[in-house]
Computed example of a mutant assay.
Amino acid sequence: MSDGLAAVNAEPFDETLLDDEEALAHADETLRALAESGARVRREAYAAKQVERGLVELDRPRAVVAAGADARLLRAVLEPWCPVPFVAWPGPGLPGWVGALDLVVVLAPTGGDPETASAVYDAVRRGSAVLLAAPENSPLVEAGRGRDTVVVPAQTGDPLALAVVVLQVLHTLGIGPELSAETVASALDEVASRCSPFLDLSANPAKDIALVLADALPLLWGGSVLAARAGRRVAETLRRMTNRPALASEADHLLPVLEGAPPRDLFADPFADIESPPLRPALLIFDDGAEQPVIQESRQRLLDMAESRDVRAKIVSWTEGPEVARYAALQALGTYAAVYLAVGLGRFQPRT
């Protein structure tokens, strides 16, 4: 198999831990934080209520540059809609052409880092309008204060919650689609309800995904821009939670990995003394309801290849609500699955 994935061997996975109260208790802090995702969106939205008044005097910018946490989420949402050029800039600093006619949006939910700070300093120095989302008492806000700076007071340290609220604020400027933070919060609440640790394997979609990935290397794909981004974020979480590889990419990059999957040995003795058999891939498809023909064609190619190589495939769907709510729900579903996979692998067990 390509990309070095064949070199990884399986660790013991105990599916009974997914419904074991004691095992789940060790992951309580992580699961509780996930369950509070919707509340964090509401808290950020409430704190930002007064921000729109500060935008009244701002004219429509010549261009928008976004920097900081989840700037690429803003790009994914705004690019198809924004009436002016939009750039997600990784930093440091800002592009050379940015000036007084442009708007710089900076997301720093925990106060920022040197690269984010350099974008703020550059924007103030060049006289750009600045929409700065950061904790009010952070040095970044003090450095960025100015006549053309509007501060969104970050409350929770949650990049997604803050990005949702900034998108809602940008709609006021006419450079983003209408977005209700409450619809995103409600979607996250619904995911938390469906993926609760108190629901057993038969009724919990996240535990079911974890079971699919128990002895597998995850390959994640989403057809729309936002579904693909949700897949990338979930892959990051899977790698962090399980110390296993996880690959999120375009269909053309995943197809060779599927094609290279070794055939399953139908005659293998399940009771043979194999301490850690090699992992085979499993395909997760993130479906947010996008129905463009090119997306449907790519999805079918992946499913057909998976079937031909006897690779397990799972479609993770959330097609309710506006696109940002669907994105948030897919990311949350995948994150719950990553936590349950880590529980089954014993990652949350106390080390002796």
Rank of each mutant, 00 (worst) to 15 (best):
G174N: 13
V151T: 10
V164P: 02
G144F: 03
L170I: 09
V98H: 04
A117D: 12
I175Q: 01
D148T: 04
P159I: 12
L132K: 02
V164G: 03
G176K: 03
P114K: 08
L167C: 03
V104Y: 08
E142K: 10
A108F: 06
T172G: 00
T149L: 01
V164R: 04
G144R: 01
A143N: 11
Q168V: 15
V164E: 01
V124M: 08
G99P: 05
I175L: 00
T172C: 03
A133Y: 05
L94A: 08
V105Y: 03
E182D: 03
A123T: 12
E182N: 01
L167F: 03
A154N: 03
D113M: 08
V106Y: 05
V130W: 08
A100N: 15
Q168E: 14
H171I: 05
P95Y: 15
G99A: 13
G144W: 04
S128L: 11
D122T: 15
G144Q: 03
A163R: 03
V141Q: 05
A181D: 00
P139N: 02
E182Q: 07
E178R: 15
V169S: 00
P95I: 14
P114T: 07
S180D: 11
P153W: 15
G144V: 10
L162H: 08
P135F: 15
L173T: 01
L162M: 07
A154L: 00
L132W: 03
P135I: 13
A161V: 10
E178Q: 12
G127E: 11
P109L: 12
L132Q: 00
P135K: 12
L132T: 08
D148I: 01
S180A: 14
A119N: 10
V166F: 05
V166G: 02
P114C: 06
V165P: 00
P95F: 15
H171P: 02
Y121R: 10
G144N: 06
V150F: 01
D148Y: 05
E115R: 14
T110R: 09
P153R: 07
A133Q: 06
V98R: 05
P109C: 11
A133M: 06
A129M: 06
A181W: 02
G111W: 15
S118H: 11
P139F: 01
A161T: 07
L131V: 09
R147S: 13
A133P: 05
H171V: 06
G174E: 15
A181V: 05
L167T: 00
D148K: 07
V151N: 05
A123V: 13
